[in-house]
Every structure is written in structure tokens, then in C-alpha cells.
Design a protein around this nucleic acid. Structure first.
Lengths: 223, 223
DNA sequence: ATCTGTGAAAGCATTCACAGCC
DNA sequence: GGCTGTGAATGCTTTCACAGAT
């Protein structure tokens, strides 16, 4: 029941996110029980893999019976930290930043939520304007905002040449996680987590795998 | 010089995309030579890793000297298939599909290009309208379009519950690569490549790594 | 009988150490 | 001397086989 993991494959964390999504769908369909076999088929991994992934965090099933959908869903939410609120700031109010500010799908369950607490830009034409009920603030106000609203994560949606600056500002403001939409490798201190969301890189990998279909891409990954 | 690889780590392909980006930036800065050490620092991996990644595909450097930026950039473009044109169709003309149709950054070099050749939706209000100089077509026209324009890859930007249908339509139309923006695992035949671009999954992984900072996420990944 | 949980084995990817070439 | 290229070693992830629980 308690966590004892010294190290966990990053691929395991990606798969847990997938299992959670599958469980949420099962629950919505009114299905109460499932098995490692079923989860494996839906996630397109092996049943061994599902059981090993879960075993990093505890024992959640019943031998001979499988898993209770509700219980496992809750446990995965707890493990991933999706049983609480997360305060988010978006840095860069171009098209993408605006789209993310207006996005409605952040709370997929009543147990958790991603709250957009602030919108940041440097453009004087944008600062002061209102998007989705929030006023765009200047990057100089980021640190104050972050401390006041205890911001947990920042989205970087600025042009690529400004991405490192945006990251530096977030780090200075005490933000511990960055979702980086810009196609660049950010430099941040060890205690700040970065996840990349890069569709251009995805297209390029795709080009390679179309040309080399025998080198099958058997991973999920994300972003 | 010739390819002999039987299997290549997927992480290697992600890193090659990063190296290529770094080389393109070096070239723009007028820098002619580089080294595995320098590339490693920029990409935040080890120099061993850079050399091993390149070794899967051939020998591109000079001992004692390093790499010629121009040559290595060209070789990586060739390896990744970014020395030709790629025809793309976008399935799903909501906000995201429209943004991707209007995006201007697809040709980062004069050597290659991603051409948006078609826009697809099912909504009769959208079919027939014009976006970025292209007329939105019904999904029923996808197969004809795909054969006529020999479409290589499709972007799936439909709501998640329609994503598998969109994938089925692309597969039926003979498209060999899918960039999936919907948060779901697609089922496709073995000869079709899929890459995922999923910012919701990225946020959830980020939540986990913020809560568990000792379990450092040392991968890049994509998307 | 069934399906989970897990130690051990196998398979991969990364790291290393150094040989090879400017 | 300097830096690449690469076989060998290490370390990590996945797969397997089966013990354990209902």
C-alpha cells in the first residue's frame, strides 16, 4: 500500500496515464471489474507489463478475480497526483496559449482539477486584455502571482527563441513543473520537472517510421 | 554510409530530431564545425550517446576534428526522410485542425516540406468552407483525395470518441503514418506508424514528477 | 479454475574504455 | 593531442514462469 520505489521507468508513468484513461472510460460504461488482460488489450501492451507497472506502487487486485474498476481508478489517480488541484500559469498568449486558456477539458473527474490561475505575456497590446475571464499580466508580475496563487506548473507557449527566458522566469517564480510546447531542450534546475509537447518532432519521427516500417515504433509516449 | 540497422531504439530517433534542430541553429549562426561534446551539451545527453546514436547510421565525423555542421545536418535530414516532400491531410477541422492548417512553420529548410494537401471534416457546416486556401472536404472524399495526391500522413484532430473512426478512414485511404492528437491508443495495421501528441497526458506525467522529484524524468520524448 | 503478484531470466539501451585516425 | 567510432560491460526494462490467493 505504501510507496517504496527507488526508481520507476518513465515508460511506466506514461502507461499509468493510459490505464487511468481506460479505467475512467470503463467506469462511465458502468463496468465494475476488469483484468490485467483487458487493460493490456486496450492499452496495447502485454498483461505482464500492466501487472509489473502496478506492482511498483502496491497491490490493487484480487487473485482469481481481477481489479475493481472504481478502486484501481482511484489508486491510479492518487499515484499520479490527480486527486488534488493543480494551479497552472500559461506563459505566452499567442494562438496556442489562448486556445489552452479557453480549453474546457481540464477537469475530467470531480476528484481533481487543473486551474488556470494566470496568463502571462510581454506584448503591451496583450497585457491587460481578458481571456476566458482572466486578465493577461506582464511577465514581471509572474513571481508575485506565483507566490500568491502557489502556482504548481507553467505552460510555455512562447516562440521558440523566447522559451528559455520563459523557463527562467518560471523557475525564478518557484514553479516546479513545466509543460514545454516549444521545440527546444530547456535548461532548468534538478528539482524542476519538464515535459515536452512537440508536434513538429512528432511529424519528423513519423517521417522516419513511414520510411522504415520494419523499425516498428512500439512505444506510446506522449506528448 | 549505407543503412544496416536491424533495430534502432525509439529514443535514438527522438534524439536525432533534436540533434538536427541543434545543427540547423548552428548553421544559422554561421558555425561550421561541432563535436559530440557540444551536441551532447545542447541536447542534454552524454557525448557517448550522441556518437552511438549516429553510429547506427554510419560514420559522419573526422577523428580529432569533430563534425562538419553542414554535412551532418544533411545526413540527419536524409536519415529522417526530411530531404523530400511529405503530403499531409488533416482530419478534424475544429480549433486545433484549423490552427494546424494555418500554421506557417512546416518548411524549416529549403530541402524538405510538409504540404497540407487536404482538410477533412464531417460537419456539413464546415465542408465546402475554405481555410488557408484549401476547401474542406467530407470524409467520404478522403480516399479519392489520398490516392490523387498520394497523401503520406494524416493528422487526427477530431474529438477523442471519433479518433478511431478517423484512423480507420485514413488506413482505408492508404495513409501510412498518423499523428494522433486525440488522447487514445489507436488500433492500426502493422504497416501504419502512429505518433502521439497528447498534452493532457503530458500534464498528468508532470503532476507525478512534481510530486516525486527524486524520480527524475531524464528522457526527452516528443510530441 | 482463474487471475494477480513477483523473483528470475532474457532482451535492450546506455555507458564505458580505448583503439583508430586526423 | 584531440575527438570519433565501436566492442564489451553495465544497468535497466520487459518478459516469463509460477507461486499464491480466492
Amino acid at each position: 500500500m505504501s510507496d517504496k520505489p527507488l526508481s520507476i521507468p518513465t515508460a511506466t508513468i506514461s502507461r499509468l496515464v493510459t490505464y487511468l484513461r481506460i479505467l475512467t472510460n470503463l467506469e462511465r460504461s458502468g463496468i465494475n471489474r476488469t483484468s490485467s488482460d483487458h487493460l493490456a488489450e486496450e492499452a496495447q501492451v502485454s498483461a505482464f507489463q500492466v501487472r509489473k507497472d502496478l506492482a511498483y506502487f502496491g497491490r490493487f487486485g484480487t487473485r482469481g478475480m481481477g481489479y475493481t474498476v472504481l478502486t484501481l481508478r482511484r489508486e491510479l489517480q492518487r499515484i499520479l497526483g490527480l486527486n488534488r488541484r493543480w494551479s497552472v500559469v500559461i506563459v505566452g498568449m499567442g494562438r496556442l496559449g489562448q486556445a489552452l486558456a479557453n480549453y474546457r477539458g481540464y477537469s475530467e473527474s470531480n476528484l481533481y482539477d487543473f486551474d488556470i490561475k494566470g496568463l502571462i505575456d510581454v506584448d503591451p497590446d496583450k497585457v491587460g486584455s481578458s481571456i476566458h475571464g482572466l486578465t493577461v499580466q506582464h511577465v514581471g508580475d509572474l513571481e508575485g502571482l506565483s507566490r500568491a496563487a502557489s502556482v504548481d506548473m507553467g505552460f510555455i507557449t512562447v516562440p521558440v527563441e523566447k522559451a528559455q527566458e520563459a523557463a527562467d522566469a518560471l523557475v525564478k517564480a518557484g514553479v516546479k513543473g513545466i509543460l514545454n510546447f516549444a521545440p527546444t531542450v530547456l535548461e532548468v534546475p534538478d528539482d524542476v520537472a519538464v515535459e515536452q509537447v512537440d508536434f513538429l518532432a512528432g511529424m519528423k519521427r513519423l517521417a522516419f517510421y513511414i520510411l522504415n516500417p520494419h523499425l516498428k515504433d512500439l512505444k506510446d509516449d506522449d506528448a
